[in-house]
Nucleic acid binder design. Structure first.
Lengths: 350, 350
DNA sequence: CTGAAAGCGCTTACAG
DNA sequence: CTGAAAGCGCTTACAG
């Protein structure tokens, strides 16, 4: 009892429809060349036999695998941010709309991992790559560009020439929006809890904060340290233990993780988030909406980033028309306001 | 300037090495058939040309794609549990060790999604599937079994006949361990916060709790409701508002998410986790170790599950020897003890 | 141990 | 509009 899928080939469809293999292929790839009634007969046969073109045979012939390579990194232990999960899903779904699938592989970070990319290319296993987890001085964009391999990165190159196509989130614009929101609800001493200089993403976010402060006539105040929630807690503690007249009334955090630490520092001092001190994070991680957390945060348009990355890549591959516009797309995050930044003081300007 | 990868074929390697294509193929697939010095010459040529067999050509000929299908579901909004992220990574890595890659696709849940599986099969795009997100009455195991398609599921079939191979976590054993841990540190009134009956996973977990209680001579007390953190908070609130002598001193929760809700209910009553009331969750989600959370939780051996799933599948495909033993593997989660269940009362038995 | 031949299932110019 | 032919790059019996 063979499975219905196992049998059908172009040949068997042709036999059933009473035409040549070529005609069946035409129905699939250039239907306008085939007379309507012939086409109908062939389509009936395809349906009856549940025929699907064999992917390997098609790839061998066309030299297109219809597979997009994606390197999956292990999520760092304790990572709160399932952003890449959503990204991969969006990429997979957008790719499917054009008959593409995603081929997953693993590789060491840095240039040690380039071999895996090279290997997939040599095998002609993929047509191009979608890159995520891009970091400062990432070797991949330069190398892929040199090799002439189509790719789109989620995340710009933060150092060196900006090579290749990318889609990214405008962290600076997001932070500007956060500061404007806090200013609008009455805050005047707004501090920033950040990462050390040189992280690209972190620098971008603090730049948006600083620019907004200057525009609004506020004094920027930035504290920085490496790390996650523990660090955020320590940095926030130092700020909150300031003399009352200097103490910030709002904390803008480079990530939700730092913000969780800051919330903890508030709790330890009996300060109520939103009432006594406002807190804003970045990433809108799932924990932000837990009862008792209710953290205001910037949400990244992950699905859109995935979708646009795929469209750009398919454009480079010639499968769809390359979307008009530059090689780069910068998308704005959106501020999700929760209890951690509800008006403490009535707006002074309205 | 062609990329070095673009050119090499079996043919060009054969020319460089001065042998026939067949001999090159033998070096790759049956090296013992080739004389050592010939083999050396061929291997040199392969290295020099950076030759890798074309995957499509190989697949077309061998009828093996060396691709494992994996359906990626969108993480439910607000999902705290990145477990599938780690699972996919483990599967990808284990597969790579045998020259396999993972093909990602999306599909609707339920029988509506079977078409996508059928399509990949008809295209011969994959050799088999690794299933995750299995649910009660999941149509996939039965259907794949009928079709004779190799697959391994992460998660057993909770209803109907147990068809096909699977690897799963022993939730009951985990909950038993949690109860024993709480009992050992002195707790005698241990309640369970669960999901409504019929979820498979939830029923398994509560069964382990109940069994442990009975064995230890404790009264099982189970409250249930649909939902996540908000529900956990409400269920915990009801328990904590009991008369003092009936109030549980420990809460075992069906998931970390319920446990976060329970922790919130404690905080709202000025109760200290671990000191006044112990709380235990399940999944060891990243948020469990946030400062101020420190939730005791059961950690699933995800990497091992991924690894064993792949080995089983490759066994079914005849690529490796099928691991001895049954078609099913049940792995124990491990209890990670944190501050939410540190001894409140000195152990009464030691 | 090595080589010539067939064929996996498809697509793409090219005649008719 | 339709069909016969070539060929994508590989592996696998089969002779020598």
């Amino acid at each position: 009892m063979a499975t219905p899928e196992s049998g059908a080939t172009l040949e068997s469809v042709a036999t059933v429809a009473g035409v040549s293999r070529q005609t069946v292929s035409n129905v699939l790839n250039a239907p306008e060349r085939v007379a309507p009634e012939t086409r109908q007969r062939v389509e009936d046969a395809i349906r009856e036999l549940r025929y699907r073109p064999n992917r390997s045979a098609r790839s061998l012939r066309t030299r297109i695998s219809r597979l997009i390579g994606y390197c999956i990194q292990p999520a760092p232990a304790g990572n709160l941010n399932p952003v890449l999960d959503r990204f991969v899903h969006a990429v997979t779904e957008s790719a499917a709309a054009h008959g593409f699938h995603v081929l997953l592989f693993t590789a060491p970070t840095g240039s040690a991992g380039l071999d895996r990319y090279a290997e997939l290319l040599a095998q002609r296993a993929v047509d191009g790559f979608v890159l995520a987890d891009t970091v400062v001085a990432d070797p991949r964009p330069g190398w892929l560009t040199e090799q002439g391999v189509p790719f789109v990165a989620f995340g710009r190159s933060w150092s060196g020439p900006d090579r290749g196509h990318w889609v990214d989130v405008d962290g600076a614009a997001g932070m500007t929006e956060a500061v404007e929101h806090l200013h609008a609800i009455g805050h005047r001493r707004i501090a920033f809890i950040g990462w050390p200089e040189g992280s690209g993403v972190g620098d971008d976010r603090v730049a948006g904060y600083t620019a907004a402060c200057l525009r609004l006539g506020l004094d920027p105040r930035v504290v920085r340290a490496e790390g996650g929630a523990g660090t955020g807690r320590a940095l926030a503690a130092a700020l909150l233990d300031d003399a009352a007249e200097a103490r910030p009334t709002a904390l803008v955090c480079v990530s939700d993780e730092s913000a969780y630490g800051a919330l903890r520092a508030l709790a330890e001092r009996g300060l109520r988030p939103g009432e006594d001190v406002a807190v804003v994070g970045f990433d809108d991680t799932p924990a932000a909406r837990l009862p008792g957390v209710d953290l205001t945060s910037l949400s990244q348009p992950i699905e859109q980033i995935g979708h646009e990355s795929v469209l750009m890549l398919l454009g480079l591959l010639g499968v769809v028309e390359l979307p008009p516009g530059p090689e780069h797309r910068l998308l704005r995050p959106s501020l999700v306001v929760r209890a951690s930044s509800r008006p403490a003081v009535p707006p002074t300007e309205a």
